[in-house]
Design a protein around this nucleic acid. Structure first.
Length: 492
RNA sequence: GGCCCGGUGGUCAAGCGGUUAAGACUCCGCCCUUUCACGGCGGCAACACGGGUUCGAGUCCCGUCCGGGUCACCA
């Protein structure tokens, strides 16, 4: 075999700093678990001053989904997970799409056969589940076909797959999270490396690509923990340096099931549609399975940049974590509140416009009222529905024990308020506020005795964003007086 | 079933042989207050179980139980 290609490939491998890769399969949406893996992978690279590479693993042609790669780009960009090399930006070790690297895998697979660490297998592809055609545990008869004989059959055009030849003995590999793990090689099977169609299996393509791309930290889900020893054997058979493995436990929907689209669990895109902010999702997800050590052990709010500074892969947890929407809401509420008023207004505007149609309402005045009262952007609409029209309500609403209000004294209070507000020279927050407070003082009453009936008549709701003064101000004098009079009517 | 991994409040989690076993979410109470929310204060609530090792064990060892992963020409 002409080996100049090998030297050429090996010669291109980057050396130096840390290099990590996120290698999703383009299936159409981003799982929360995937996003977390991407985040940790990115964080390892950035915290070490290294490179983050994006590679698309599309060897399963049957599962390709149109537009899926764009969703990956968008999600990563949204979250701030910038990549240094990838299909769109290129890089020194491309191409970054597996199907475009097809012949590479074949060459390495054949090389492995020559090295005696793999063999050609001519067994029929099994049709049924039971007869998988997979002998495993070194029982495949093809394993012992002399190389020259097998090679002749291959050259003659006979269909084949290439299988890894697991040696006898034990294999110990090391994982940054789980430590050293030793397995008996008898428990490992001669997995297929190159499929009948010439494409590599995931396990093989991964090893080849990670090596050729100079990946130093292989970050992936813990479901690959059991195939890690086979990876190790592959690296060793090629004589390559073994990367640092970082296996991450899964994100669960409950104690026994992973989060999954199939169970109706939200993907990243779904969370955005549910009114969550990507910074909140990133912050929450970062802490779902990882925690900072030392002086930051009690800190929970981190920007991406701050995470880069404190991230340490040793803080990654071994056990699975259950995704808790309530806690995500807490983070989201925090980020929503932390927004500058204008920034919040920009975000909230579409939701406000969809809920409030009365042209006289200044949404810029409504926004700051709902800002501290939202867990998600979807919480806006139900709070502001009364601006368009007062809903049906019961006079019981006027009765509030703590405010010491009942229907009779509410009617009385509204009777005082209406002329006072009619006479107000200026219609602004302070003027309205002082006017109503003065009214309470004049009658030697608690503020609530005046405020509660007013707010009730204006909104018809027990709970509103903002109190009586805010509502008067936003509704405007005309609408305020109209609703107040309607309240009097309602109570009479 | 074999092999591998895991197991601290309902949830996320500190803890690395000696702590009154942190903190956060949720829930409850109180304060603030023109409702609610925000904010502040306080409270409920945990080392799966059994054996060792040790002066001393959530922390180390063994077993049990429970949970997960994996055993594809999917990734």
């Amino acid at each position: 075999m002409d080996m100049t290609w090998f030297d050429e490939m090996e010669g291109r491998i980057p050396t130096g700093g840390a290099r990590t890769r996120f290698a999703p399969s383009p299936t159409g949406y981003m799982h929360v678990g995937n996003l977390r893996t991407a985040l940790y992978t990115w964080l390892i690279a950035r915290s070490l001053g290294g490179k983050f590479i994006l590679r698309i693993e599309d060897t399963d042609q049957g599962r390709l989904v149109e537009g899926a790669v764009d969703i990956i780009y968008k999600t990563l960009r949204d979250c701030g997970l910038t990549w240094d090399e990838g299909p769109d930006v290129g890089g020194p070790v491309g191409p970054y799409i597996q199907t475009q690297r097809r012949d590479l895998y074949g060459r390495y697979a054949h090389l492995l056969v020559e090295k005696g660490a793999a063999y050609y297998c001519f067994c029929e592809k099994a049709e049924s589940e039971e007869d998988s055609g997979d002998f495993g545990r070194a029982a495949d008869p093809c394993r012992d076909i002399p190389y020259a004989v097998a090679k002749a059959r291959v050259d003659a055009g006979e269909p084949y797959v290439i299988r890894q030849k697991i040696p006898a003995g034990q294999t110990t590999f090391s994982d940054a999270i789980y430590g050293d793990i030793t397995v008996d090689n008898a428990d490992l099977d001669d997995q297929v490396l190159l499929k009948r169609d010439g494409l590599p299996t995931y396990n093989f393509a991964n090893v080849i690509d990670d090596h050729l791309m100079g990946i130093t930290h292989v970050v992936r889900g813990s479901e690959y923990l059991s195939s890690a020893p086979k990876y190790d054997l592959l690296y060793r058979a090629f004589g390559w340096a073994v990367p640092t493995y970082v296996h991450c436990s899964p994100v669960m929907r409950d104690a026994q099931n992973k989060m999954s689209k199939r169970h109706g669990d939200p993907s990243y895109e779904d969370l955005l549609a549910m009114g969550f902010l990507s910074q909140a999702v990133v912050n929450y997800v970062a802490l779902l399975g990882w925690s900072p050590r030392g002086e930051y052990a009690e800190t929970e709010f981190f920007t991406l940049e701050e995470l880069v500074g404190v991230f340490d892969l040793h803080g990654i947890s071994k056990s699975p974590a259950i995704f808790d929407l309530e806690k995500l809401k807490y983070f989201n509420a925090h980020y929503l509140r932390a927004l500058a008023p204008q920034a919040f207004f920009d975000l909230a505007r579409p939701y406000l416009e969809a809920a409030v149609h009365a042209p006289a309402i200044d949404l810029a005045l409504v926004a700051p009222l709902v800002q501290p009262r939202c867990d998600t952007l979807l919480d806006i609409a139900p709070q502001v529905d009364f601006f368009d029209a007062v809903p049906e309500y019961d006079n019981e609403l006027y009765c509030h024990k703590k405010m010491k209000t009942d229907q009779a004294n509410s009617l009385e209070a509204l009777g005082w308020v209406i002329p006072a507000l009619e006479a107000l020279p200026e219609w602004n927050f302070d003027a309205i506020h002082d006017c109503l407070i003065a009214l309470a003082e004049a009658h030697e009453l608690k503020n609530g005795r005046i405020m509660w009936p007013v707010r009730t008549a204006l909104s018809g709701k027990a709970v509103t964003p903002g109190g009586a003064v805010e509502l008067c101000h936003i509704l405007g004098r005309e609408e305020t007086l109209k609703r107040l009079r309607a309240g009097v009517e309602h109570l009479s």
